[in-house]
Design a protein around this nucleic acid. Structure first.
Length: 429
RNA sequence: GGAGAAAUGGCCGAGUGGUCGAAGGCGCGCGCCUGGAAAGUGCGUAUACUCCAAAAGGGUAUCAAGGGUUCGAAUCCCUUUUUCUCCGCCA
């Protein structure tokens, strides 16, 4: 959510920059500025009213006190009655104004949440995924025409898709044997890699409340994409980003604690309504999957350096696994509502002959922290919004898909060296 | 789940109807003192919004949250939430 101040002070540039995201902000920005003007005026009126009321009460109080001391109880009673009448008048006026202000605030809020984050200047105006810029491509792509991972998973007894269908439904696979062990190994490898680089490991709840959903932007924007436990009004987390970032909701961080670097492994739950076809085959798109996430909270002026650092960090991890990968800078049409700049990592899936997204690293600037009320105190004792960033490091299913497909040999599936200490085996056969 | 107690600033803690955004202490910041430090000592030390060109200085709100009583609420009443203690249940 952009701050009202930002909108007021940068009307023109906001409208033009949001065009990069294909968003026509002109009307809504004007409405926000107008509503805010009215709100402020009404708020000032209301506060003046309160000030008068406070003064009346104070004066009356002083007089009542004095009169009572002198034993003039009847006179005190008269003062009391006068004050009561005045107070009643104020209350009628202020009640009306309060309703008005509350309505204006709601209107303002409803409009503010419609505005996407401003894209970084390096974000191009492309309309869809084809227009993303390939920043880097690395690794050798093996020969094609081998078994897809869903066949390999069945062949080696790694994943039981049918059992998942029975227990829950499509998109909830059951990992078995070396398949299950591989999951655990990947999670450990990823977490170790992250903690070695100074990320603090946390284990958050998997259900969150609506306030948390709002803080990171899943609510109200992506309401339908989360599983909702209606009896308790909880949501299953779609990513660890939500609980981990929300640790800092309503927090004023001490400057010396920055930057904050956190990592968490969690299962992720996504309804993915409307997905179908080859995109969802096997491990390509699941309702429940495992992911290790990294989150950083930094001072505004350092957030892009942090983004670069996170991209480099994720790249190391992909390299450790020996998978061919590429890094994309998302264009305006493909970047998310909340992000200012996003880099996607994709690994090549040999049998499917296509790239699979395995990580998305984003700088949200102050878009989340404004919702979260996540701030720090500057040297000048000003409180200022911080910047939040996060990235997958990494999401498991498509990594597994690529590992299985790319590393298959006549003898079996070769486990990358970096992973062997965690799996305890170097081949799946 | 049942019974009871509690919730005050960064922390501890005082405050049962008025001049209380809140004593006192700790911590922290800036001084003084000192050769340097400790001790001592002086001053300062919440957040949001808002008025003012800015600063200085005002205004409003906030003592878990929401509502109520009252001329006036940290203080009284109601609801909710959370925490603690005891009992029950339980991995």
């Amino acid at each position: 959510m952009l701050t009202v101040k930002t909108i007021e002070n940068n009307r023109e540039s906001i409208v033009s920059r949001l065009k990069v995201k294909g968003f026509d902000a002109e009307a809504i920005v004007d409405e926000i500025i107008e509503t805010e003007g009215t709100r402020r005026k009404k708020q000032a009126e209301l506060e003046t009213l309160f000030a008068e009321q406070n003064r009346v009460a104070k004066d009356a109080g002083v007089r009542i006190g004095a009169l009572k001391k002198e034993g003039k109880h009847e006179e005190a009673e008269i003062v009391k009655q006068n004050a009561a009448e005045e107070s009643a008048k104020f209350k009628t006026l202020s009640a009306a104004l309060e309703t008005e202000v509350a309505q204006l605030e709601k209107q303002l809020h409803d409009k503010l949440v419609l505005l996407p984050n401003l894209p970084h200047e390096s974000v191009s105006a492309g309309k869809s995924a084809e227009h993303n810029e390939i920043v880097k491509e690395s690794g050798t792509i093996p020969e094609a025409t081998q078994l897809p991972h869903w066949e390999l998973a069945t062949k080696y007894g790694l994943i039981d898709f049918e059992a998942g269908n029975k227990l829950t439904g499509a998109g909830f696979p059951v990992y078995t044997g070396k398949g299950a062990k591989l999951q655990r190994a990947l999670i450990s490898l990823f977490l170790d890699h992250n903690t070695e680089k100074g990320y603090l490991e946390v284990q958050p709840p998997l259900l969150i409340n609506a306030d948390s959903g709002f803080g990171t932007g899943q609510l109200p924007d992506k309401e339908g994409q989360m599983y909702h436990v209606t009896d308790d009004d909880f949501y299953l987390i779609p990513t660890a980003e939500v609980p981990v970032t929300n640790l800092y909701r309503n927090v004023i961080v001490a400057e010396n604690e920055l930057p904050i670097k956190l990592t968490a492994y969690t299962p992720c739950f996504r309804r993915e309504a409307g997905s179908y076809g080859k995109d969802v085959r096997g491990l390509n798109r699941l309702h429940q999957f495992d992911k290790v996430e990294i989150v950083q909270i930094t001072k505004p002026e350092l957030s892009y350096a942090a983004l670069d650092e996170m991209v480099a960090h994720v790249e190391e991890l992909v390299k450790k696994l020996g998978l061919p990968y590429r890094i994309l800078r998302l264009c305006g049409g493909d970047i998310s509502f909340h992000s200012a700049l996003t880099y996607d990592f994709e690994v090549y899936s040999t049998a499917q002959e296509r790239w699979l997204e395995v990580s998305s690293v984003s700088n949200f600037e102050s878009f989340q922290s404004n919702r979260l009320k996540l701030r720090y105190k500057t040297q000048q004792k000003k409180t200022e919004l911080l910047h939040t960033l996060n990235g997958s490091s990494l999401a498991l299913p498509r990594i597994v898909a690529a590992l299985l497909e790319n590393n298959q040999t006549d003898k079996g599936i070769i486990i990358p060296d970096a992973l062997v200490p965690y799996t305890g085996f170097d081949i799946i056969s």
